[in-house]
Design a protein around this nucleic acid. Structure first.
Lengths: 338, 338
DNA sequence: TTGTACGCGTTATCAT
DNA sequence: ATGATAACGCGTACAA
């Protein structure tokens, strides 16, 4: 059986209150007493019982991390970085993968909240729907613990957002293609989430600004799983067969972009001479295809760092910015002419 | 302030013991009483305090998941699958990424153990070192909670292993290449872990069995990060420049294999005509390169399912197999001639 | 500076 | 079937 604070207090010849004070770094302990207690603690390798401690402190120093699918390249990296940041701040990470069905999100949130986490991080913009009523569950739970949004934004007390300016990043990517002489651009997206909509609007705003006619017909939504590259290629092949021609592609995700490259490869289209491709997320996939994929970097490391920094601040009772926005960056590689 | 079990018992006009019985699905409650209590619980949306509950049950129904880096393709998928399995068994997942430095592993284990998890899953074979003393920390902590190894094996009470027969899988891959007429094979590996050594031995045993001369010079260890594909390509380029020629590659990881493909691409080598490549893990990377990568599937889904099944059994006090071994499978794609 | 005593919300044990 | 009560291990007023 593990030792309790009572055992330690007895062995050290002090009261449990003193042991507790030593444990929690209180100033009001004589140095000699502290040492006496510390010696016993170390001798017996004593660790306070986490449950009892959680009960007293109303916290186990644990943050809930919710994401749709932690095996997704982008989300996996985000989860990893968050865990690292939290860990170095003394917090544990309770991971929970919800899948992409928005209807059951609420259940997962309640589940993880029932575990008494100190805060909640929602990773990925698919936690924020387009219409208000989808997001009510967030408003509800924000009364219990601070909610941190990564790659999304929602205006609500006790909800903090960290995100990339996906609108501008996509706008600039589209503009770069147009400037390079390519204005028949396929815009391929795979989710209608918060950031997904920002990207799409960035694209169509750029097309409007440059008065590109008929661009709407080349805005296509791919519903399937983004890790099925061949199915993505099939999808693009259908578009190419039935829709207007295109010589550029902007995808809302690197996977979709690589899927396009597979399509091009099947058709013998040369990249970037006959087809320019721009992805999103600047993931490891950008390196593994030939030529290497031009992609938009959303500064995930910067975002996760800031997010956790903000969270720790909130938990310490400090006033923190409700929204932190970073700008994305187009990383130019071999799939574009510029 | 959240309601307590006392509040509920008062409102329902019963004792806290009865409320607790209802909560925990005890049989010894009259149906009418149960309904009465349930109504109050639902009306006030009562949830038991997790800390107090943990204290009573000595468990918060949480499993610790340790892995080196959850953003690694293979590990990320493993973590995801484990979380799903655990979740559907009513367990939460406390994730902790340790990095690849074995010296600090022990600290992480103690840290996560101090959070009172019910069990520990060590994901990836790099938790098991080649010499016994490296693994002592596992022996120590196995007295506290059951330890589950994914993709590794270690003989010790209360430690359970689930793994793929990497030796045979690699042996067969090497044999397949040799049978296809390619016996000058570069074996590229990136870790000296438990499974890493099994793979390597599978390779060299196959080479011995087929009496391939001088194969040792083509067994190469890449020390860098496996997500730096261009650096891998640089590394292979050096080997090609200074070492004996090779017309086949077997890599211990898909990333390394794709790195080789990048090298081939730089040199204008045709795949598979001039260079055959076989990867390991059958990850999404196999699809994103051209041609698609032949790879060894280690049946991760099967493994994670069995691992959690075993863990749940152990936690329920059942007798469970100490070791579950599945056979790998060579998934043939475009980077090999067969 | 140190100790006592209580509260935290459960589950478990023993009566009834 | 139900209730009263004792742990569980720790933090913390409050007292000394």
């Amino acid at each position: 059986m593990a030792l309790t604070i009572y055992d330690i207090s007895k062995k050290a010849g002090v009261s449990i209150a003193t042991v507790s004070r030593v444990l929690n770094g209180s100033e009001n302990v004589r140095a000699s007493t502290r040492k006496k207690v510390m010696d016993v603690i170390e001798e017996y390798d004593y660790t306070p019982n986490a449950f009892a401690r959680g009960m007293g402190l109303h916290s186990l120093k644990t943050i809930g991390i919710l994401c749709a699918d932690s095996s997704d390249l982008f989300l996996a990296k985000a989860v990893y970085l968050l865990e690292q940041e939290l860990s170095s701040n003394g917090y544990g990470s309770l991971l929970c993968c919800t899948g992409y069905n928005p209807d059951i999100r609420k259940d997962y949130v309640n589940l993880i909240l029932s575990k008494k986490v100190d805060g909640l991080i929602l990773v990925g913009s698919n936690f924020i729907g387009v219409n208000e009523e989808e997001n009510l569950y967030i408003r509800e739970c924000s009364s219990q613990v601070p909610i941190m949004l990564l790659n999304a934004s929602y205006d609500c007390p006790n909800v903090y957002s960290t995100l990339c300016d996906d609108f501008s990043a996509t706008y600039e990517a589209a503009e770069a293609l147009i400037t390079a002489g390519i204005s028949d651009i396929l815009y391929l997206y795979g989710s209608v989430s918060y950031s997904g909509e920002k990207k799409r609007k960035g694209f169509l705003t750029a097309m409007e600004a440059h008065r590109v006619p008929g661009y709407e017909r080349l805005i296509c939504y791919y519903e399937g799983r983004t890790d099925r590259l061949n199915e993505i290629a099939d999808f693009v092949e259908e578009i190419a067969a039935s829709g207007p021609p295109f010589h550029g592609v902007i995808a809302s995700d690197d996977c979709l972009a690589v899927g396009c490259m597979k399509y091009a490869n099947r058709k013998g289209l040369r990249i970037p001479e006959e087809l320019s491709v721009i992805g999103y997320n600047n993931s490891v996939l950008t390196d593994c295809c030939m030529p290497e994929l031009t992609s938009i970097d959303n500064r995930l490391e910067t975002q996760t760092h800031r997010l956790v920094e903000t969270l720790i601040g909130v938990l310490s009772g400090e006033e923190m910015p409700k929204k932190s926005i970073f700008s994305g960056k187009l990383i130019k590689r071999g799939t574009t002419l510029f």
